[in-house]
Write a protein that binds this DNA or RNA. Sequence first.
RNA 1: GCGGGGGUGCCCGAGCUGGUCAAAGGGGACAGGCUUAGGACCUGUUGACAUAGGUCUACCAGGGUUCGAAUCCCUGCUCCCGCACCA
Length: 948
Amino acid sequence: MNRAIEKKWQEKWVNSGLFDTDPNSMEKLFITVAFPYPSGAMHIGHGRTYTVPDVYGRFKRMQGYNVLFPMAWHVTGSPVIGIAKRIQERDKWTLDLYEKVHKVSKADIDKLSNPEYIVEYFSGQYHDVMVSMGYSIDWRREFKTTDETYKKFIEWQIRKLKSMSLVNKGKHPVKYCPKCNNPVGDHDLLDGESASINELTLIKFEIDGKFLTPATFRPETIYGVSNLWLNPDVKYNLVNSGAESWIISEKSYNNLSNQIKDLKIIEEVDPKALIGKFVKNPVTGENHPVLPASFVDPEFGTGVVFSVPAHAPADYIALQDLKNNSKLLNEYNLNDLVDNIKILNVITLKNYGEIPAKEIIEKNNVKNQNDPNLEEATNQLYKIEHSKGIINLDIPVYGGEKVAIARDKIKLEMIDESNAEIMYDFSQHPVICRCGANVVVKIMDDQWFLKYSDEDWKVKARECLADENIIPSEVRTNLSYYIGWLEDWACSRRSGLGTKLPWDKQWLIEPLSDSTIYMAYYTIVKYFKDLNIGDLNDEFFDFVFLGKNSESLDIKPSLLSKIRDEFNYWYPLDWRLSGKDLVGNHLTFHMFHHSAIFKKNQWPKGMVVFGMGLLEGRKMSSSKGNVVLLSDAIEEYGADVVRLFLTSSAEPWQDFDWREKEVKGIKRRLKWFFEFSDKIKNIKGSSINLNDIKEIKLEKEIDHWLISQLNLRLKDATAALEVFQTRKALQDSLFLLKKDIDHYLFRVENREDESVIYVLSTLFKTWIKILTPFAPHSCEELWQNHGGEGFISNEKWPQYDLKLIDEKIAKSEEIIENLIKDILQIKKIIKKDVNKIHIYPSQDWKWSVYEIASEIAKPDIGQIISRSIKEDVTSDKKELSQFAKKIAKEMTKTNYVGKIDEIAILTNEKEFISKQINSKIIIHENDSFDPENKSKQSIPYKPAIYIE
RNA sequence: GCGGGGGUGCCCGAGCUGGUCAAAGGGGACAGGCUUAGGACCUGUUGACAUAGGUCUACCAGGGUUCGAAUCCCUGCUCCCGCACCA
């Protein structure tokens, strides 16, 4: 097989429009794969994703389905904007990546500074590579998500959802880069990728008409406050929030000002001047002193902390540190204040006393407030108090309640009375944008959201999931989890490529939100070239997809109904294939949107989720340069080899590992298959013609055996393919079947009779059809070279014949193989000269006992003996009992398929056996010659052996 | 933390609705055949022991259920993946 032959067939397929699919009277099958975002070259990891549906589609086409397999390009979004910018800035790393990994020519690389060109360039390349992989795609339906017609479709979708109140304006905290002026995702970060956004309660403690505003995870501890902490070594500012004045750290302003409207800096405040003064607790009304502590982080929260020494290890130890620091105490004149501090218990915890913080500090051996163990101690206590703690009975109103419940109530009460506000901060610092700036938490308040939090919508999405086939099945739990977990999803963006929000044009529709129901668009896109863009209004889509009124549409009614009929023909989508990284978003959104927009009978019917690709055992990654481009792989090995490797080395949902040695193994295997017909030719003396196979009545067991194996392999492969088990299908139909053929050829060596030719030709004719979905180019070529008419891609998938799958024949073959093995083994052990070998097949009565044993189906020796006696299988009871013991053990190791005429098969294969063991053999029908009394040892399927 | 999935022979991996499992298949290694040689191809070996087809030890560790466990149950250890405004 060479590339020229593959190209020849690819051209023939395209020119004949073989895979262009329109509605017809056959049963339809509609499969899609997540369309690619073409921001780089296609590598073998991508290759697997598209090869699996192609194999499945080709298989189903051969089974007589009308299969639609379309492809499009998801080009909306922002990554290419960043890439283009970096190219423009001549960023060395990016240029290298695109020249060396994505192999963009020097001539083209500069043009990549235009984001539109990037997607244009790579989608063109994707298209070409997909063609050269031989994918059976209906290219008439190819589109980009920036096409004007697609935008019309997206506008319709988003308006539809808005009309159902599933799109709302809302508030949401996001990671935000003030320098880029944009929300940022984790992949946009240089540092702090794993930081999450946490909610804090900012509580106002009055001081001289102003407020100190510590922020806390644990608002319930407001009842246990002993003092406030300020860090005397950091800068603080007085800021105005509405009518109030707050004192917060200078560094926290950056974050907080993105959350609280019109937060204005008034002046700097000296923390040292506040130390020793008193603040008023807004809930208890008590006064607490302000004290100095070095552990207070100016970047976290507001840079102000309230101290709950009973429950916060840091507070407790800071208090101890202060007590031991006479210099500090004297500097601020705090001796009396500190002596008067009372430690108050708020939370009761089983197995802990009044001051759990103290206990946990001792347990973790924390020495001072700068000890690294402090964090661990804090985490331990926070967790246990949240899950197991009860509010102290002395606390008014909330006493006796669980902490987890009281916390929210106390927070809400304080907010209600304007004593507190919500703020957000990261779980860790720093969080740094790719541009180098510090990222903050910003509350976006003019954002548009898809209301995935809506309970009714979740119910529908779950219903959609319940009716779907999910492969592999464990993903169902995942999907269900995500449906529950999804909150409102911000569906508008400031930058990137995409469709504008029709009612608020300053926003673009977020690129995951525009790729949820696009499968519907495939079904009708080919008509758009005949329509005006103005025709594609909401009424048009309402009619085509939902069957609503079409009176005012200015489109020929016959065309209009043809479009609607086509949609109705293809929908619902039968299978959606996608990488497992998309489970939590694309695939879940897909169910949400379908269930909201379409009628129930048009909801998707199945999903297949893929694993990832490894390269020589390491994770594949373009950015790390650890990839093999699909185009290079095709050049080096040929498309069929690549297809076979990608589908045979792992099941679709497992990770596959591209190992060059193993790819070469596949190449050898394909070559063997491709040259198989030459072997037949050599035996026959002339080429096979598939239309002219001379049928022969088979007489030899081994001929039946191969036909039986063929049918068995075909049966197993067909069943496997039905559920996307490409690996198992190939294991059966390529690897194991090849082994069967090897074995057969070995057994029939030197036989050149017509049965061999018939058996091999019949097998060949079926075999090339089974492998057509996997290696279509090779199979087309073989088909054509051996008299096949038209495309083999159009041939019917072969039918297996259950009657030809014969367990007894398989068993007979096994008997012969095992006998040879056993004799060789014995010869090896006894190490003496061998004259003749005597073989004693099992006596009839032993078969009867085995039959009885297999009916009992348990190694129950007593029962086997008693039933054998009852049925009078033999008169020699002593031998019977010995044999029963043996058979009881043996039967757990073999599969009983019924009585086999061992004498006949051994006699037939006498010559072969004799040749294999290199000794003369004698088959005895009785024990008239049995000097060592070996014949007693025979067991059904295991004749006795005596070596002379 | 929450959710999901794993740990099998030199390596990758199948098996895991309990007995046909010393455990498929591939890769690697070794031996033999073929070949001018190499490659390719074919056959065999690749846990240990064994002068009769056997025995022992094995599927992360420990315990249990069973006539019987890689497969079922419990406990522990350990590895991988996802957790959002991003394709």
